[in-house]
Design a protein around this nucleic acid. Structure first.
Lengths: 195, 195
DNA sequence: TAGCTTGTTGAGCGTTGCTCAGCAAGCGGA
DNA sequence: TCCGCTTGCTGAGCAACGCTCAACAAGCTA
């Protein structure tokens, strides 16, 4: 129970921005336990202490709502992975990998739900996901100081799928040390793009 | 409109086995246009020319129904990929890869919906998917005459994710020749498991 | 205080997953 | 030929859900 879920006795009137932010925030809190598309308007509204109707005032459809939640989650991931300015180029990719593994460790189910559920039929959600993946590929190629040609883009994109899967397996059952995992991923990436 | 969707004038009574098979078949026909979980009982029943209630007689819940459909789809894929008996060991993996690409080319959206939608929150569906992937990994390792140790299993599993993603990209935008794609996938696999 | 903007609600509609009591098709036995 | 049993099958109907709409009311400004 967070503050956002307590039904205030006197009806509280919020600014549009606040309300939107609150609703998205509730969606984020629910993500770990519920696949995005299965969020129910009733549940979210109940937690926000508002009527269903109000949610539809801010998000025209349920899809519009959970797309906003998905985008918020993607933004959090992106900000978490971005190298701190001033990091030596050599450490940037390793650092990102490290933080990515940490992210998956921390959020496990909710991250897997995001990654996989992304492609799960819903074009709106998968668009957000692909957009983030695209940005990450671009960042990776830039950081590695490699030309951004079509083939390399494809390879790095597919390597992300490889990495997501391997990290997913590792989190479920850590059969090697964490540094080994990072080194393995880095090694595969280097060999892929070095050709 | 297939024969199965024509509403017969006199009420037709089928055996339990026939009816089940028909319903699963209708699900398979709908897969290309609809993500499994979004199949509606109404639509399926309408196409079968039966009442909704009857579908619930054969499948206790909607989930049970689309899990059966998913399993049928997985079985089709598995049978399609299996090397013909008598194929020289050397060609088996390449042949499977070739047929896999062909499969994705043919079914495009429905396959992607299956692969990705698999993890999409639904444990029942993703179980079917993981089971199939596991069988494929085992088959691959056996065919390549490699020991089936934990690390190699993980790598080949992750390589499948890599391959799925790359093939998905290639089908959407074929930027290289088909043989080049096959050679690339095979090359990456060989290097991964050779260590 | 009046009036305007806009955050907010409740009643209600259509669809969908699911239940249940009971009908009826086809077979076997007398 | 009729009876009776099994079992494939239906229709009415409930609850949950997404979504709409007319109207209320909080809080600002004149």
């Amino acid at each position: 129970m967070t503050a956002s879920s307590r039904p205030e006795h006197p009806r509280l009137r919020r600014s549009a921005g606040d309300r939107r932010a609150q609703l998205v925030q509730i969606g984020l809190e629910l993500l770990p336990t519920t696949p995005v598309q299965e969020l129910t308007i009733d549940e979210v509204a109940r937690r926000a202490g508002i009527s269903r109707s109000l949610l539809f005032h801010y998000f025209a459809t349920k899809r519009e709502y959970y797309t906003a939640v998905t985008r918020a989650a993607a933004d959090l991931l992106w900000e978490h992975l971005l190298p701190a300015p001033g990091t030596p180029a050599e450490q940037q990719v390793t650092g990102m990998l490290d933080r990515y593994v940490g992210w998956v460790e921390t959020f496990r189910d909710s991250h897997l739900a995001f990654v996989r559920g992304a492609g799960g039929g819903d074009p709106w959600v998968s668009e957000v996901y692909e957009e983030t993946r695209g940005k990450l590929v671009e960042l990776t190629l830039t950081t590695l100081d490699l030309p951004d040609d079509a083939l390399r883009r494809q390879l790095v994109l597919a390597w992300f799928a490889f990495a997501e899967d391997l990290v997913g397996q590792w989190v479920a059952e850590p059969t090697m040390s964490r540094p080994d995992l990072l080194a393995l991923l880095r090694d595969v990436l280097d060999r892929l793009v070095a050709r």
